[in-house]
Design a protein around this nucleic acid. Structure first.
Length: 953
RNA sequence: GCCCAGGUGGCGGAAUUGGUAGACGCGAUAGACUCAAAAUCUAUUGAUGGCAACAUCAUGAGAGUUCGAUUCUCUCCCUGGGCACCA
């Protein structure tokens, strides 16, 4: 027998598969087989070609599709190219080749590289987003969006990248910089087409959790990606307040998601780039000053990439009349206010982190309506879940020494507590009287220079001496002693605690109560913002915890007509035009008389004109604007003078629906045939990089839902199961990049080790969704494995199976079948490695067993498998054979090894029959470990079936 | 700062509902084959002690629950990814 020659074998079988078209997908009406649609995120054919990281996902889908095909599914596993957009255009500009030619060349190279890996794509369905036959339908979808009012023109300032010379969506920014080139983005007013994705915000959010009829989740996606989308959509429910601006006819609206403390509002902030600002300060003495300041702030914010944490602002000179009765509130411009969240104007109070900082900085008056509540959860005073709370009005006093800068603390004797003076208020006492009485009782001091009332704080805690849960309402005081004169203290009090005088530093370490410590800090001028606690206003809600009053606060505000419910989203509408050449032309016409007119559907596609110069103009106009022959057209409505829209679509457009086109890639009459769409339904498995979690995957879901609404598709969601691929890093552990010179080319690996080895290695490296560094050394393992598989063929005989091999084989078939579905390829491969080393040890291997093994190996190493298959006398490709089934009966073990532990430590192993009785096993076990049992009597024997016996001594 | 995922030998990683930690692979060491090398095969390979049987310690750190914890709970540290003035 010849040795394993991957070069010969792989080339031969790739040609054979192509010739016989064995991977061509059958149309739905020509088969009764159930369908399985597995899709890779199609690549952007860059000029640099593939590195070994790219095909990792493709190999995984290839393995799954091959297994599914063998299991009788009608598999759709297509591939295409996403080739419009900036990278291709910039590459073309740099290399001075027309993008169309460059893209063609790059695609050819990509296909060659994919080809040598032996992937089972049905290339007859290939799509290319830059093909007019394809982008005809991208334009068609845009027209439908336009007709439904979901595409609109916006003249608001947009993000402009001065280097790419194009407008960008918020999503294309990275901390205020252009994601592609890293240059600072400017705001520039430009006419843009924008898609109203916000109309779908609620559905995009809730339908992430859509359920099947049986109650299971429709979308089987990684929770992390769902979570990212939820954050991206950023739903927040709150209240909308409307207020007149004093001395004007103007009104403003403010939004608040945390409105419970609405009576605390003392000022208002507006975003520096808020469109309303100009009108607000018009004809006021501060007009120029405020606008200049704001303009500066916007500039600063942009250049700092939104990273400024220091807040800045200016008073506008205007006031609102607060609708909830807090009087006239000054309006400030504040750097931290965002124009495009909520209404861009906020009512502010002491009970918000940023508002608080801002107010402190500019000495704006604050009002507090939440008193802090502390709940002890740790240590001796942790609240007991089983006890009710005893409510008490109480006092606490910080007492200063009559001479020194020292403060009075009580060191408790029964427990490890350090506190200030505290105590309850007796009936008929005022808090002042109570604190004085407590102090005298506990310490004997009674002569005061001054007494000052501080705040009120509440605490829930367990009181160990009293053995009860307390809910104390503490009135805090600051007292200065006049002299050290003392009265006699009772023995009872003396037994409870010791009086100590502490320096400021010592106080810090001494205190155990967070509430006392906060009060102490506030006394030193370090005030903390209060976000949660007990509300003191309005009367109707007073005394309740903030977190419990939300619903009642809404009712109160609505009943009194003070505010309305309102939901806002972080999700912004989608800036859908680019001022560049290399993209789908937006199929609209601007007519002098009729305004914006859609290109009639029969005239689609609007082809991108072939031009010599396609450099960005830099003026904010697309290069297409300069091509008068293309631009000037007749209005489709009135036949008058008109011009084409010259903006093009963003790169995301073509990829937002390509998965539908694969179902029916050649159809000239429809985006996708209705019957075919019904048959292929939804993508069963979608594999790609997690970096597309929030853009591509949200845009595609948006378009899909729109297409559902207009009756083009019949499903709610495009991708049922989503799996992210972990990156393959360079051997140095860094991202593979030209810059680091750590790129591994798959062609070299295929040459040296073969495609089957590459495939096996990439699947064996580790968990599929995890990033792992490429290892030049470890790849030899899978290669050796394949050589051993190849050699076993020499031992194949017509004899009956050996029962031990048969048993292991069945177990392996099961493991591989299950692991592939769950995308745990590494463990599937390791189980096959175990089988192979057992086969090597056996004197001979039955033909039947060997064939089954080669079949389960075939999805991973299809070339080698087909070659062996043929050598074993089979005529048809192994990839079309029927996936072997495992037989549970043959997998049963007769004996089982049981571990015997003494006190949880392994001391012996015994082998017993599977059906042995528990008593018997326990007996055997205690005999096996008898020498460890002499120490004491047996307390307990734990038996876990087929696993272990644990004897507790 | 917030959210998510993760931390296991020299390295990549395994470990069903809590039940023998280190499967499988790489590397390393020794031996066989060879004039020699490579390749291949065989054996060993978490650490420490011991000639050995064996013992003790080990899954980022610390605590807890349990007969028993890589797995569950809490606190902290570190790494990767995402978001970041979101009212």
């Amino acid at each position: 027998m010849k040795s394993y020659d991957h070069k010969k074998i792989e080339k031969k079988w790739q040609q054979e598969w192509n010739k016989k078209k064995i991977y061509k997908t059958t149309e739905g009406d020509k088969t009764r087989n159930p369908k399985y649609y597995v899709l890779d995120m199609f690549p952007y054919p860059s000029g640099e070609g593939l590195h070994v990281g790219h095909p990792k996902g493709y190999i995984a889908t290839d393995v799954i599709s091959r297994m599914k095909r063998m299991q009788g599914f009608n598999v759709l596993h297509p591939m295409g190219f996403d080739a419009f957009g900036l990278p291709a255009e910039n590459f073309a500009l740099k290399m001075k080749i027309h993008p169309e030619i460059a893209v063609k060349k790059n695609i050819k190279r990509f296909k060659e590289q994919l080809g040598v890996i032996g992937l089972d794509y049905d290339w007859s369905r290939e799509v290319n987003t830059t093909d007019p036959k394809y982008y005809k339908w991208t334009q068609w979808i845009f027209l439908q969006l336009f007709k439904k009012g979901l595409a609109y023109e916006s003249h608001e300032p947009i993000n402009w990248c001065p280097s790419c010379k194009t407008g960008l969506a918020n999503e294309d920014l990275e901390g205020g910089k252009c994601e592609r080139c890293g240059s600072l983005v400017e705001k520039k007013p430009l006419r843009q087409w924008v898609l109203k994705i916000t109309d779908y915000a609620e559905r995009l959010l809730t339908e992430l959790d859509l359920k099947n009829k049986d109650g299971s989740l429709l979308l089987s996606w990684p929770e992390s990606i769902k979570e990212m989308q939820r954050h991206w959509i950023g739903k927040s429910e709150g209240m909308l307040f409307e207020a007149p601006v004093k001395d004007t006819n103007l009104k403003i609206q403010t939004f608040s998601a945390h409105f419970e403390a609405f009576t605390a509002d003392t000022f208002v902030v507006i975003a520096p780039d808020h469109p309303f600002l100009k009108e607000l300060v018009k004809n006021t003495p501060k007009e120029k000053e405020v606008l200049d300041f704001s303009a500066n702030l916007v500039k600063e914010r942009l250049s700092d990439g939104y990273e400024t944490k220091e807040v800045k602002g200016i008073f506008t000179g205007r006031y609102i009349v607060d609708p909830v009765g807090n009087g006239d509130l000054p309006i400030w411009v504040a750097s931290y206010a965002l124009a495009d969240y909520g209404t861009g104007i906020v009512k502010c109070s002491a009970h918000d982190e940023r508002d608080f900082v801002f107010a402190k900085k500019y000495n704006i008056k604050l009002k507090k309506v939440i008193e802090p509540l502390y709940i002890d959860t740790k240590g001796a005073s942790a609240v007991r879940a089983d006890l009710p709370f005893v409510e008490r009005e109480a006092v606490m006093g910080i007492v200063k020494h009559w001479q020194e800068d020292k403060y009075l603390g009580l060191k408790w004797k029964q427990i490890d507590w350090g506190t200030f003076v505290t105590g309850g208020i007796e009936p008929g006492q005022t808090p002042e009287e109570a604190i004085k009485a407590e102090l005298e009782e506990e310490t004997g001091y009674f002569k005061f220079k001054s007494i000052k009332k501080l705040g009120r704080r509440h605490a829930k805690f367990y009181h160990p001496p009293k053995k009860e849960n307390r809910f104390g309402h503490f009135n805090h005081f600051y007292l200065e002693l006049e002299s050290g004169e003392q009265k006699e203290v009772s023995q009872e009090e003396k037994d409870k605690h010791e009086v100590v005088w502490l320096s400021k530093d010592e106080v810090e370490k001494f205190l155990v109560s967070e509430g006392q410590r906060d009060e102490w800090h506030e006394l030193q001028g370090k005030e903390k913002v209060v976000l949660d606690g007990i509300l003191t206003e309005p009367k109707e809600l007073a005394g309740r915890e903030v977190k419990d009053v939300r619903e009642d606060a809404i009712k109160y505000l609505e009943k009194n007509n003070l505010a309305k419910r309102k939901t806002t989203y972080k999700l912004r509408d989608w800036v859908f035009s680019r001022q560049r050449y290399w993209g789908e032309p937006i199929p609209l016409i601007h007519c002098e008389k009729c305004g914006v007119v859609p290109v009639p559907e029969k005239d689609l596609p609007v082809k991108l004109p072939k031009v010599k110069f396609y450099e960005p103009t830099g003026t904010g106009e697309s290069p297409l604007a300069a091509i008068s022959k293309w631009v000037n057209v007749k209005c489709p409505k009135c036949k008058g003078k008109a011009k084409r829209e010259t903006n093009t679509m963003p790169q995301w457009a073509g990829s937002s629906w390509y998965y539908l086109r694969f179902m029916d890639s050649k159809n000239p009459k429809a985006l996708v045939d209705k019957k075919k769409e019904k048959y292929w339904n939804t993508v069963d498995l979608y594999v790609g990089g997690a970096e597309h979690a929030t853009r591509h995957l949200i845009y595609a879901r948006f378009w899909h839902k729109f297409l559902l609404d207009i009756g083009i598709v019949s499903t709610e969601e495009p991708f049922r199961k989503l799996q992210s691929v972990g990156l393959i890093m360079g051997p140095d552990g860094r991202k593979m990049s030209k810059r680091f010179g750590n790129i591994i080319n798959p062609d070299d690996i295929v040459n040296r080790y073969g495609a089957d080895t590459l495939r096996l290695y990439e699947m064996f490296m580790g968990p599929f969704d995890q990033a792992i560094a490429w290892s030049e050394e470890a790849i030899i393992g899978p290669r050796r494995f394949l050589e051993r598989v190849w050699k076993i063929a020499q031992k194949v005989s017509k004899n009956n199976s050996s029962s031990s091999i048969e048993k292991l084989l069945n177990k392996t078939i099961k493991k591989v079948s299950v692991d592939i579905v769950e995308m745990r390829f590494n463990t599937a491969i390791s189980s096959m490695m175990i089988l192979v080393s057992e086969m090597e040890k056996a004197p001979d291997i039955s033909l039947k067993d060997y064939k089954k093994f080669i079949q389960i190996l075939a999805p991973f190493a299809p070339h080698l498998a087909d070659e062996i298959w043929k050598n074993l006398g089979e005529k048809k490709s192994i990839n079309l054979s029927v996936w072997p089934k495992w037989d549970e009966k043959l997998m049963k073990d007769e004996d089982v090894k049981i571990v015997v532990q003494v006190n949880g430590k392994v001391r012996a192993e015994i082998v017993i029959a599977v059906d042995a009785k528990e008593d018997e096993i326990k007996k055997l076990a205690s005999v096996a470990v008898s020498k460890y049992l002499t120490a004491g009597e047996i307390k307990k024997v734990i038996y876990i079936k087929n696993r272990l016996v644990n004897i507790v001594v």
